[in-house]
Nucleic acid binder design. Structure first.
Lengths: 170, 170
DNA sequence: CACTTTTATGTTGCGCTGCAGCAAAAAGCG
DNA sequence: CGCTTTTTGCTGCAGCGCAACATAAAAGTG
């Protein structure tokens, strides 16, 4: 199936919290296209199931629990089993397309607001539930310093902050 | 508004990761004594149940799941119901005596390595499972800056880092 | 092409997590 | 002492997460 996004789109500075009235159709299809590219480049297969899971997450812009995803994928052909969704989520996470929000037992599509292995700071709006990804450059440094002071060799920092997002504050 | 309490204990330089051979008997009883003082000062009751839960956590120096705690509290008189333990954990958390490690769905006794409302950085050793609490002074600053850049008003930062602790590295 | 190997999905089942709702017991108070 | 508030016990349940095994689909191979 052919996508109707324009290939030559220049990189738009992405808002950390998408405006309520943003062109969602487009933002989702861009993300799917990126996922395809990414998987192809890594020799991984973005199967229909995996794509469906990613689409469900993209459609919400909010973290979804695994069983919420199941709910949204349910149709007249029945619903996927939990394990099926969990496996797709594992795949998507391994390929940097989905994050897990630990404090909520939920998952969110990656906003790609950060370079590959960099530290990500998740900003969780307690009002609308949206999750933003802020680049954590300076934080990473401070964190490494603090860790080393404790004789600790850090690996995967996880930062989640609850608060009020820019749109809900207005 | 909650600054009326000042721990009267002289500040002992507390290792972030307790040495494997430290005087555990003493470290636990000190923590219990502190909990009693703290609760008394706040007009809260450290009941036997709550104390047992705290003791179980202190005895392990590692995060325990709720059902692990139940297991350790079980005796010839039977075992506490999950809800009972969860309620005690809620109480202990509200009074700053226990932390929840979100990425593990587990709980750990507070090491008091941080001032009351300050940011805490949890260092989780992937080898021995121990959890250290590093003061997050510099990190908090960087975090606030990063948040504000995104138009986000932060409330409860949560930082958990997986890595190797000082003792396991040797 | 048939055949093997690898990868992905479906099915069943189960243990852990976390709490709601109500009842009983214990502690605090006039 | 009665009365209120707090705490604990009991029953039950929904969401989370995955193990173990079976089947199907894709990819590699001669």
């Amino acid at each position: 199936m052919k996508s109707n996004i324009r290939p030559g789109t220049t990189k738009i500075p992405r808002a950390i919290f998408p405006a309520p009235d943003h062109d969602h159709e487009r933002c989702a299809s861009t993300a799917i296209a990126y996922a395809e590219t990414q998987c192809a480049a890594r020799g991984q297969r973005l199967t229909p199931m995996r794509r469906h899971v990613l689409e469900a997450l993209l459609a919400s812009h909010k973290p979804l629990g695994a069983y919420e995803i199941i709910e949204r994928l349910a149709n007249k052909n029945g619903r996927p089993a939990p394990i099926t969704v969990y496996r797709s989520l594992d795949f998507l996470r391994e390929n940097g397309l989905v994050h897990r929000i630990e404090s909520r037992n939920a998952f969110v599509a990656c906003g790609h607001n950060h370079a590959g292995d960099d530290l990500v700071v998740f900003l969780i709006c307690e009002r609308c539930g949206a999750v933003g990804e802020a680049p954590g450059g300076g934080v990473a440094e401070a964190l490494r310093a603090s860790s080393r002071a404790a004789g600790f060799s850090p690996k995967n920092p996880l930062i989640e902050i609850v608060g009020i997002c820019s749109h809900c504050r207005e």
